[in-house]
Write a protein that binds this DNA or RNA. Structure first.
Length: 272
DNA sequence: CCCGGAACCTGAAGGC
DNA sequence: TGCCTTCAGGTTCCGG
């Protein structure tokens, strides 16, 4: 499931294969992957445009195009972006293929069909409401404290809310809360300044470590060359069913928060 | 504005 | 072995 570290890895590894190349063809195997404009317009407006840069905002990947438009891609839960030779046959789950200078092809593969692409002039229509980027220097403990104040939702739900903070999903929310020693059901507004400082540090540390491991391949995450990431080998609680806490050896607990599987150590993360 | 729950989708895993 | 049910979760939509 691509979250910030996975999308960051895809951005870094995709860039050398796409930046400076011109889109020579588009095949929409499943047109539903394009949110806007119409499938017809999407293809015809893309062809002939050169990709001038790749960036990331939260879990969104953004391709800048020479014509001034922007191709925004969200891989949601099961999507991957693969670089292949132009002649490679799309597999069963490939929903769209973008050909680059007739040499290589970018395959958008997505078994679950949650993934989305938009071709727009102003990306702010799509990413404009996202919360702060957690790895930017401008994301400080003071900013986090201000955003948490008076919030009554569980801290886990807030961390997964893209308008509260961008890029964190189920896995990294669990990892950050464990690293900070905070129970996922604690209400946002109930955290002390000390806890907020620990959480702020944990968020940055967990995301940076995962990026250095090229993301976590728990399910359906592939890098553009088809390789997996290794960040999940460093997970201390997330998805560790029937395991024990690496700190205190208590059995890791699994609860549900907002209908999402949530892993924690009942000893290191005291319940509210 | 804030919060919680359902819906979207399909492969994997579990139950009988 | 095989059918059926449940689970997985990022985002959006809707109701309170």
């Amino acid at each position: 499931m691509p979250e910030l570290p996975e999308v960051e890895t895809v951005k870094n590894e995709l860039a050398p294969h796409v930046v400076g190349y011109t889109i020579s063809g588009v095949t929409l195997v499943w047109a539903g992957i394009v949110r806007s404009p119409s499938a017809q317009n999407f293809s015809s407006r893309l062809i002939g445009q050169k990709i001038t840069g790749v960036s990331r905002r939260g879990k969104y990947l953004i391709l800048n195009l020479s014509g001034g438009e922007v191709l925004v891609i969200h891989m949601k839960m099961s999507g991957s972006l693969l670089i292949k030779p132009a002649a490679a046959e799309p597999d069963k789950y490939t929903r769209a293929v973008i050909y680059l200078d007739g040499e290589t092809a970018l395959h958008f593969r997505d078994p679950r069909k949650f993934g989305v692409m938009w071709l727009v002039r102003d990306k702010e229509n799509i990413v404009g409401k996202l919360g702060p980027e957690p790895l930017k220097a401008s994301f400080t403990p003071q900013i986090l404290e201000k955003r948490l104040s008076k919030r009554k939702a569980p801290i886990k739900a807030l961390l997964c809310d893209q308008n509260f903070i961008a890029g964190i999903g189920n896995m990294y929310a669990d990892e950050a809360l464990f690293a900070a020693g905070i129970h996922p059901l604690r209400l946002g507004g109930s955290l002390s300044s000390n806890e907020i400082a620990r959480l702020h540090h944990a968020i940055k540390q967990v995301l940076e470590t995962a990026i250095s491991s090229k993301g976590a391949s728990i399910v359906n995450y592939y890098r553009p060359d088809g390789e997996l990431g290794t960040a999940h080998f460093n997970f201390r609680v997330a998805h560790r069913r029937n395991a024990t806490c690496p700190e205190c050896h208590a059995p890791i607990e699994r609860i549900t928060v907002r209908n999402r599987g949530t892993y924690l150590c009942p000893c290191c993360q005291p319940s509210p």
